[in-house]
């Protein structure tokens, strides 16, 4: 299959061809690939793309998935509308 047509990260529109090119350029750990390609930085927070990328990278480099370690998940796990945090007493609450 044409790597330009395989979507790795749907949120940020990253293809397998982009991923291969980045690995070729020397971005060989998941943290760097995340920042360079924005894989896992969109609304899905990496739930769809990071595991795939980790496995692909591990296979490509002959490492285990643990060795290319997954970036830390940040809260919130799903995007949350900002209006849920509107409070009249916010000043007292936040010092």
């Amino acid at each position: 299959m044409d790597p330009r047509k395989v979507i790795v990260c749907r949120c940020e529109n990253v293809t397998l061809a982009d991923l291969e090119e980045a690995i070729e350029k020397g971005y060989r750990d998941l943290e760097s690939l995340k920042r360079y390609l924005r894989i896992g930085m969109g609304p899905c927070q990496g739930m769809h793309c990071l595991l795939f990328t980790a496995k692909y990278l591990a296979r490509k480099l002959g490492k285990s998935v643990e060795e290319v370690y997954l970036p830390r998940n940040r809260v919130p796990l799903n995007p949350v509308p900002a209006r849920y945090f509107i409070r009249r007493d916010w000043r007292e609450m936040t010092g």
Binding site: R74, V75, P76, P79, V80, P81, A82, F85
Partner: peptide, 8 residues
């Protein structure tokens, strides 16, 4: 208010 907070 209508934007989505993605990451903290």
């Amino acid at each position: 208010a209508y934007t989505n907070i993605m990451r903290y």
